[in-house]
Measured scan of single mutants.
Amino acid sequence: MDALKSAGRALIRSPSLAKQSWGGGGRHRKLPENWTDTRETLLEGMLFSLKYLGMTLVEQPKGEELSAAAIKRIVATAKASGKKLQKVTLKVSPRGIILTDNLTNQLIENVSIYRISYCTADKMHDKVFAYIAQSQHNQSLECHAFLCTKRKMAQAVTLTVAQAFKVAFEFWQVSKEEKEKRDKASQEGGDVLGARQDCTPPLKSLVATGNLLDLEETAKAPLSTVSANTTNMDEVPRPQALSGSSVVWELDDGLDEAFSRLAQSRTNPQVLDTGLTAQDMHYAQCLSPVDWDKPDSSGTEQDDLFSF
């Protein structure tokens, strides 16, 4: 819950932080000083300027060897085509990944977070970031790969997607708890209302004896509580940590079903599988986004697919 609360507080303090972009060759504004600060901008989305290598189908939802083989196929196909790589912007948030063309600003792909089953910074092609997700059109699994400016960037994108998945799962947990509370309150309110109706004398007997209905007592009954809980029953509950912020979080049926399955089948359902080692994760978390744009010590960066 700490990640969720800190993310909400950060967004309320400075929503404009989320509009910064990394990996864009110096076009961005001043960047936060450390990885923790940038992680807090996830709610509205972190932007990464990358190059799209392509996509291939895979048979399993996750796995280092599986993704490595898929990336190898994608890279080989991209090299064989001889075409310049498409420059894209990857927007990562707890909602998922939005992929747009840098030149036309046209939407290429919009992947809900619950469809993503794996992401990684490839070991062999260490400047490549990739994720595996279920197609929104059918049940097939797709591996999408992107060329980053350097290994640090690939690791940073991988960690960002993993963190977005974690925050999304926490949102789901909060929403589920809130819905259970509202359902319980609604049920209790309905029981109270039913009890009051059972003990209320029939209207005919009131008229016969000349008694008047006590409207004041009726007004004191917990009807307002019942209506408050039943009027918006169809509205999706939102985490309290975000009250007053500009973010509107809505959970669709697909996300609810997917996270429910994860909660039942996995020990740590909030953790998205990645190909990063503990050492890689520690190294990337210690980086400032400013470091992502620094040239690798191995030599001059080449803006070309064939540089790796």
Rank of each mutant, 00 (worst) to 15 (best):
H282I: 01
V226Y: 09
A154T: 01
Q302E: 04
F171H: 07
V161R: 01
F129S: 08
N102I: 10
Q86E: 09
G96S: 04
C119A: 07
A7K: 14
F165R: 01
K220V: 10
G210A: 04
K123I: 12
F259A: 02
T200P: 10
G190L: 13
G244L: 00
K19R: 11
A18C: 04
A185E: 06
S288A: 04
L287M: 11
V174R: 00
A154L: 07
I98R: 06
T160I: 14
D291N: 10
L287S: 00
E59D: 13
G194S: 02
L206G: 09
A263C: 11
L57M: 10
Q60H: 15
V236D: 03
L50Y: 04
V161H: 00
A228M: 01
K176V: 04
K220P: 08
K79C: 05
S224Y: 11
L66N: 13
S205V: 04
L107Y: 11
E216A: 09
Q163A: 02
A221R: 00
R9Q: 02
E217V: 04
A130N: 05
Q106H: 12
R261Q: 10
F171R: 03
A80V: 14
S297K: 00
L272E: 01
F259R: 02
H144I: 13
Q270G: 08
G96F: 09
K220I: 07
N138G: 12
T277D: 02
L141N: 15
L203T: 13
K204A: 07
A3C: 09
I12Y: 08
F129R: 11
Q264D: 04
A76M: 07
E216N: 04
S307V: 11
L141V: 04
K181R: 10
E44M: 09
V111R: 14
E250I: 00
W292Q: 09
T230W: 04
D37F: 02
A68Q: 04
M233A: 06
P222I: 09
L255M: 03
V248M: 07
H282Q: 03
G189A: 01
L305V: 04
K184G: 14
L147W: 11
G210I: 03
T277S: 02
L213D: 07
P201H: 15
E217G: 03
S288I: 02
S175D: 06
T218P: 05
S260G: 15
T200C: 04
G210M: 02
L305Q: 08
G63S: 15
G63E: 11
W35K: 10
N34T: 14
S265Y: 10
G54Y: 05
T160A: 10
G45M: 15
V248F: 11
S14H: 10
K79G: 13
F259N: 02
V248I: 00
P201N: 08
Q155K: 11
S260R: 00
V247C: 00
V75H: 12
T38N: 14
D280W: 01
T120C: 09
S298N: 00
K5Y: 03
C286R: 08
H125C: 09
E216D: 12
G45A: 15
E59V: 11
A258R: 00
T209D: 01
R261N: 08
S16C: 03
R238Y: 01
S186Y: 01
A3I: 09
D191Y: 15
P94H: 04
M281S: 01
L85V: 12
S245K: 07
K87L: 09
R29F: 05
C148M: 07
A121K: 08
L66E: 00
E257L: 02
P239G: 04
Q285H: 04
E180P: 00
V111Y: 03
P201Q: 10
G244W: 03
A80Y: 13
D280I: 00
A284F: 00
S6D: 11
K181A: 14
S21M: 02
L66M: 10
L31G: 12
E142C: 06
T267R: 04
Y118H: 12
A3T: 01
A208D: 07
K123C: 11
N110F: 02
S16G: 09
V58P: 14
G96R: 15
Q106Y: 06
K123G: 15
F171Q: 06
A156S: 04
D2R: 04
K51E: 03
D252E: 05
G244N: 02
P15W: 04
L11Q: 10
Q197E: 05
K123F: 08
V157M: 00
K152W: 06
I108Y: 09
L251T: 13
L90S: 15
A70Q: 13
A69G: 09
V207S: 06
D280G: 05
G23W: 12
I108P: 01
T158K: 01
I97K: 10
Q60C: 07
D253H: 13
K204G: 06
S67E: 15
E216G: 07
T41W: 10
F146S: 14
V290R: 06
K87S: 10
V88M: 13
D296V: 03
R238Q: 01
F259K: 04
E301Q: 02
S205L: 12
K19W: 12
Q270E: 00
K127Q: 04
A263F: 14
E178R: 15
T277M: 02
Y131G: 13
T38C: 07
T41L: 15
A228E: 05
S205P: 12
T100W: 13
S175W: 02
T104R: 08
S227I: 11
